[in-house]
Design a protein around this nucleic acid. Structure first.
Lengths: 341, 341
DNA sequence: TTTCGCACCGAAAACGTTTTCGAAATCAAC
DNA sequence: GTTGATTTCGAAAACGTTTTCGGTGCGAAA
């Protein structure tokens, strides 16, 4: 009933625990005969090393922590899938925590993971995170830390991102190329880097095309989370404020879909009256009507890349080698659909 | 740099490790003075108990495993969220694994979790799982195991489910009530219990309303996973086989949306020509056009309930009490929208 | 003065592994 | 028969905690 231990195998065969341990790990100072004996008995007794004891001895648990702002989210759940698939290949397990876009929670969760002594941490920051001491603590304790998607440039660690600025530029340029003359932007909250970068890309595209940049056309999301309702609200407000807008670049597909739904209700035609470009390429965007032009953001690949980098760093720390931080930038693509002309 | 241990605190204060340990855990045989001293020093040194050592001593890791068929999935990601939120409250961490609807992988992952010695396991079965010895092994080793959503009735453990049969009955009855005379069913793969139950609910509704049950109107998903493409394929096939069908009850929203997309392309009007009811109430279903009538399946609540039950059982095992298995059935609701008349 | 109870503390074992280091045994060569 | 090398094994320490059990010292009661 109780799990088999090395000791029991040793007693069965009348040899020492040491030899059993070494036999199972193919040490060279165990004779082939005893190796065979030990391995056979281990298999018939269904021996599984006690992970707790191994962890204590080796000081590692083959487990990493993952903190993301939200789980029910097309992009993030794809990231999770990417991370887990890669981790499994390397024999690592993944503990997932949801920060709920809250800095306080994020901090607590980092603490939790550290006291569980995970081997490394992957994190995409909460929108509210402006203080980074909890992250620097992790690095100070010589644990590997890799940030992805929502990062903080100021923290000295590896990062996996897309070029948000360039992608936003592409999106806006597409609106311009298809004839839009007055283009609004629904941006995310103020803090996160990718929200800032997308805004900057939007702005640059306008200026590069000799179009005026009008701050009143930029709608900031104060509420903190980028929701469907947010899109509806902004759409209403936009129609009140500016009846001459003929294109919008929207920070996230979900918000874009909210806006389109509202426009549809109010009789505003997309793309005839207003063209819309979203961001992230949620699956949903390909089945609504009209289908949504958007920027494809490779979540699965991002998850894979983030784990791969973390894995490298964990190995470097183990070998006491200096850690080389990297910034990995993944490619995005414009997906043209029916919401633009 | 290296983490602080009890020993270091003990040496600092010139007392024994035992006393330090007991002071931190408020044992009654430590004087208030030394308790205060120890706690203060522990705080200033930022002492965190070594989880590996604690695990080894106490034989538990405050960690549970979760195996689900797919992660990028509205229902399942809500389940994850429910589980994690509840687990966090009770101080448990969650390791997530994706079985990819594969029995082989599921088996391996159970093994992995067992050798990691998680305190309990939550699982929703892969479609292909027909052999349950890996689950019985878990129970035989006196680990808690709770199944949810996709369960096997034959395994003796607690289960959290919805009444699929009743829900399917409601869905089909709604089609009948709104005037459908010939109703098809896109069912899931053959094996999983909920696929079977939904089919039975569909059939019973027909018979109770004196409508003939025609097996050729039931489309089985051979491919194993319930996808958007599956819906398109079935929709095409249905139009070829039966041009008199005026209503479909579809196993899953995603498949229903695939079918609607195809109907739309082929000029078949929903709900005028064909009414459709889906299952699960994916968010997407409320924003597509026409919006999809469906069955609301409470993923978040299911996750919460599953963890709560697991927690109870883990406590019972710890106290050597007999485990009382429960079958918890959550309520569903019909959400009427535009895809039915 | 002895005895009993009580408050406080610590030695030591235990959890199950990994790894170092030395010892024993075998064999070859001189 | 001695030396040296080589192969094979095991004792023991270590990882950091928890918990049992006994001990000490002190005040109060007899």
């Amino acid at each position: 009933m109780k799990p088999v231990t090395l000791k029991q195998i040793a007693e069965h065969l009348n040899i020492s625990i040491t030899t059993v341990s070494k036999a199972l790990k193919d040490y060279s100072d165990v004779s082939p005969k005893t190796k065979a004996l030990v391995k056979e008995l281990a298999k018939t007794l269904n021996y599984k090393p006690n992970a707790f004891a191994v962890n204590l001895r080796t000081k590692e648990s083959k487990t990493i922590g993952l903190i993301i702002p939200v789980i029910v989210h097309h992009f993030f759940s794809n990231v999770i899938r990417g991370i887990i698939s890669q981790a499994e290949k390397k024999g690592y397990l993944v503990i997932i925590l949801q920060s709920n876009e809250s800095y306080e929670l994020e901090k607590k969760q980092i603490d939790l993971l550290m006291s569980q002594r995970v081997d490394g941490i992957l994190i995409s920051l909460a929108n509210g995170t402006a203080n980074f001491s909890h992250l620097n603590d992790v690095l100070a304790q010589e644990k590997s830390l890799v940030m992805f998607d929502k990062i903080a440039k100021i923290v000295k660690c590896s990062k996996v991102i897309i070029d948000d600025r360039k992608a936003a530029y592409m999106a806006t340029q597409h609106l311009i190329d298809t004839g839009c003359k007055r283009i609004a932007h629904f941006r995310g909250p103020l803090l996160p880097q990718n929200s800032i970068d997308r805004f900057l890309g939007y702005k640059k595209a306008l200026l590069d095309n000799n179009m005026p940049y009008d701050p009143s056309l930029v709608y900031i999301c104060e509420c903190g989370d980028m929701s469907f309702e947010e899109g509806k609200k902004n759409a209403q407000q936009l129609l009140k404020d500016h009846n001459d807008v003929d294109g919008i670049f929207i920070n996230t597909d979900l918000v874009a879909i909210g806006a389109m739904t509202e426009f549809n209700k109010l009789g505003v035609k997309v793309p005839e009256d207003i063209s819309i470009v979203g961001f992230s390429n949620w699956f949903m965007s390909s089945v609504i009507s009209p289908t949504l032009t958007t920027i494809d953001q490779p979540g699965y690949e991002m998850g894979k890349a983030a784990f791969k980098q973390l894995f490298k760093e964990m190995k470097q720390i183990k070998k006491n080698q200096p850690i080389i931080y990297k910034e990995i930038v993944l490619e995005t693509a414009l997906v043209k659909r029916e919401s633009t002309r």
